[in-house]
Structures are given as structure tokens and as C-alpha cells.
Design a protein around this nucleic acid. Sequence first.
DNA 1: GCCTCACAGTTGAATGATTCAAGAAAACTC
DNA 2: GAGTTTTCTTGAATCATTCAACTGTGAGGC
Lengths: 146, 146
Amino acid sequence: MLAPMPTTAENEHERLLRDASLRVTRPRLAVLRAVHSAPHADTDTIIGTVRADLGEVSHQAVYDVLRALTGAGLVRRIQPTGSVARYEARVGDNHHHVVCRSCGTMADVDCAVGDVPCLTASEDHGFVIDEAEVVYWGLCPECSAA
Amino acid sequence: MLAPMPTTAENEHERLLRDASLRVTRPRLAVLRAVHSAPHADTDTIIGTVRADLGEVSHQAVYDVLRALTGAGLVRRIQPTGSVARYEARVGDNHHHVVCRSCGTMADVDCAVGDVPCLTASEDHGFVIDEAEVVYWGLCPECSAA
DNA sequence: GCCTCACAGTTGAATGATTCAAGAAAACTC
DNA sequence: GAGTTTTCTTGAATCATTCAACTGTGAGGC
């Protein structure tokens, strides 16, 4: 019996893993799918999605995979104050986030300055800066209406 | 026997508390002193400082005080990804932080844009934004030398 | 100055995200 | 296909933070 033909996205995910020198495993592919399909999901949600997809998978495996993918730069970890860790697959474009103070909803915001910059602090105290992370805080449309 | 003459800072702290409708207590004054004297200290460090100052004080009291002071806007809570909560007394001037990826050291950075702005996201998705939090990530002088 | 009582602090246990550790299973290499 | 290394499973531990119930005290009114 032939294996089902992988989808284009599946091949793409597999390639991403191989390019990062990471072994291609079912849990890793499932986590990539989950993060791509639901940006800004927290670990618990991702665990749920992966289990709906593959059946039982240990939470430890998901934690390990997320750490490996984050280390390889395939996903980005976000953790606004007061929130648990969340992950997104949109990487490398220096975008930022708006977070609702009331319900925690997040949305992407392109960098107002451009794709690379934001790196110029007014006084860097001798630090070698490689990233500027911006979080806009406020209320989402629903919460500000209420 | 006369009570020792309070210092100017002490009077100032007392006034801050009263203005915020918070009762003036020894733990609260000690926490204010601690946060003023060591900016960016984490809760555990603050507990240590407060105890060195007053003798035994419950950690719960310090947590409660920090929450009350944060709620009143007398201190600001900072929590960069991967760090425990830290507190600082410099509030209301919209300044930002540089954090060392290696040792976690933090330094203040004045807002490059000015005192108020930073609030203009390129596309706000309908969010009502009231704060822009910027964290610059990099290496401090010591760690980048090594 | 003393009373009162709501607000603060103490004590001790619970929570929950994340991590550690040791053994079993699966991927890649040859 | 066998060997080696990485990854996954299982189960327990960590640790910052919070909850809850009781006791103590600051601040306004008598």
C-alpha cells in the first residue's frame, strides 16, 4: 500500500526541518502544522491541536519540539507580560504585536519603520543590540466596544 | 524618646502612598525603598532587601505590596520573555529597556521617538492602543567581550 | 487618647507552566 | 538491514505566583 501523497505544505515543512538539520518526525510536522494554522497559539492549544491530528502525543514532546523549532528559527516564541508562551510561524520579517489587555487577543503589526531597523536605541549603554521587540498594549475592537 | 526624623525620601514615599489612597505601612515603605534603590530587581531580590531592612516579612506580603503599587502606578512591572517579574520605580516617562540575552542584565533606554508617542502602529487592527512597550535584545558590554 | 473596622500581613497550602531524568522508540547513516 | 544518535514517553520535580483563612494594625471618628 502506497503512502498518501504528501501535500505541498507537508513537503515544505519537511524541507524546513531538514534545512535546519532537524530530524523529520510526525510530532514535529504536526507542531509545524499547528503553529502555521493558528498563529499566536499557546503551548496547551498546540498540544490539543497536535493530539487531534496524531492521537496521543506527550506534552513533553511538544515542549521539546517547540524548543527545537524556536532554536532553529522556524517558529518564534512570544510571551507578553502576564501570558504563557505563544508561538507563531511568521519569522524573519521583524513584525510586532498588538495585545488586548482585556482578553489577551493578539494581532500582527508590521514594523512601522521597515523590515530591518528598530534597532537604534537612543542610548545603548554599550549593548550590542540584535533585535527590538515591540508590544503594543490596548483593547481589541470587541473589548473596547464593551 | 522621639521617633527618628524621617528622611526626605521617606516623606516622599509616604506621600506617594497616601496620594494613591494606600495605607502607609512598614512593608510598603520598605518595598518602595527597595525598588528605588535597585531598579529592575526581581521579586526574590526585593524580598531579600526588605527583610534585610525590616526583619522577617512574608513573601506573600511583598507580592501583595508589589501588586498594589503596580496597580497604583507607583512602580512598573517588567517581565521580558524568559525572566521572572522585575520592578522599577521610574514610571510615567515611557522609557524602554535593553536586556542582555546572556546574563539578563537590564538597562534603561529613553524612548527614541519622544516622551509620548511610539503609539502609532502601522496598522492597528481596530485596537485602541495605550502603550507601546519596547525591549531591545542583545549582549551587554561584559558578555559581548567574552 | 481610645475604638472600631476595613484594609494589610501572616501562615500554610495549592496551582500550573515548564523542566529534569531515565528508559524505549524511531530516524538517519553506512 | 544494523548501528548510532536523536527524539519521544513516562513520571516526577521545580518554582514563581496565587489562594484562602485567620490575625494584626493604620487611620478616622468619638
